[in-house]
Design a protein around this nucleic acid. Sequence first.
RNA 1: GUGCCCAUAGUUCAAUGGCGGAACGCCUGACUGUGGAUCAGGAGGUUGUGGGUUCAACCCCCACUGGGCACCCCA
Length: 427
Amino acid sequence: MKTLIPTVKGTREFYPEQMAVRSRLYHQIQSVSASFGYEEYDGPFLEKIDLYAAKSGEELVKEQAFVFADRGGELITLRPELTPSLARMVAQKQGELAFPLRWWSFGPFWRYERPQKGRSREFFQWNIDLIGVNSPEADAEIIAIAAVLFQKAGLTPAQVGININNRRLMDEALLDAGITAEQKKLVFRLIDRRDKLNREAWQKYALELGLSADQCNSIEWLLGNENLWKQSDELCKVFSVLESLGVQDYIHYDAQVIRGLDYYTGTVFEARDLDKEGRAILGGGHYDNLVGDVGGDPLPGVGFAMGDVMYPLVLEKYGLLDAGQQAPADVLVVVFDQDSMGVSQSFAMDLRRAGLRAMCYPEPAKLNKQFKFADRVGIRQAVVMGPDEIAAGKVTIKDLNLHNQETLSKEEAIVVLQRLLAQADCL
RNA sequence: GUGCCCAUAGUUCAAUGGCGGAACGCCUGACUGUGGAUCAGGAGGUUGUGGGUUCAACCCCCACUGGGCACCCCA
């Protein structure tokens, strides 16, 4: 074989089998989002680098964004996230939009990272936001949407969970533990690393960061305190609303959930496989000011993002990704020879008009080749129109699963095929 | 950006430094107007790329590219 030009590192090709997974994901997201009254939107895939330079962290723009100069020399970025575009879109029409705004989106993003399990350089992401309100009920609604998606996909509360925390609560708790404002960022990083290191290494790391043994112990006590949330009125309210929404089985309090983004100010959450395997499935939180950086009036909101790489891995792990390749058509009309090509094509069209997915072999070929093709792609019914059938004004339909066939009038054949299809749908 | 592992037929994998094979898949035929079975044939490879060591390299060494995993980071 000649050497093929390889794909760009970290990109993914969607063969029909994988495309079916992506489409199913899209439709589930669409359906869940719509059921809560959210509207679909999208932003540009290309943005000026300034949009991200203003707001996102240094690492995102410098290290992890695809940036290139266009023909005019302007620095263009393949969007690494949607929030800045969303902020601009909201700010531009802030005066005419009806708040609270419920918007969702599903589209491609790019990040120049080293690909590994659950992470690629080109991926799709579901973003959903409830903008213009500042209530625990809004936080709970967004979290419930994530839980409902899991529910609909068949993931149980024994398999995945949504871990919730609150930034304000952590700020106060850390202040009580004697952590200064300057130390806060480092401590957040320390907390994030809690599960990655063993206890000794973790404590050593804490001392290296300049924390005292007392401070370290206090943090450890904080993280082990399952009732810490009771000190936060906000979290109490969020949990109570989630109970009303009937999704409390998915919900856990977890003092280790911090989330990296600086703009989260209140409730933060992430969903994970309960085995603690792999990366977070989704992550999000409450923010105070979505549009400030792009020049709008301050707007609070809550939202999350879920990639299309980790989530299917979890579904697959629990056997919920039915890999069953669907046949591309219900019926294959076999072409007997060049002379009968026309009538075969014409009958295939009759079948399509009758609501069947029909395929006509696109050239005359040996019958065994055509039947083998039907078998290979999983088409169950074949229609043969040879000289005998044409002379009698009939067609032969063959069931490749049952290995039987019968010769009928065209009208009868269509009815029989429709009935078979309806039966197959019931199964 | 750092570290570890990997790269041989379409696929999954073999092959002490000494003539690169198997299974499955693919193509053709037995087969008549009919696919999954069976049998008989056949095609398919510059061993990821480029250097080096050697009389001799799929095998040893170096670099590159790509893949996997972890770190970093997580919008």
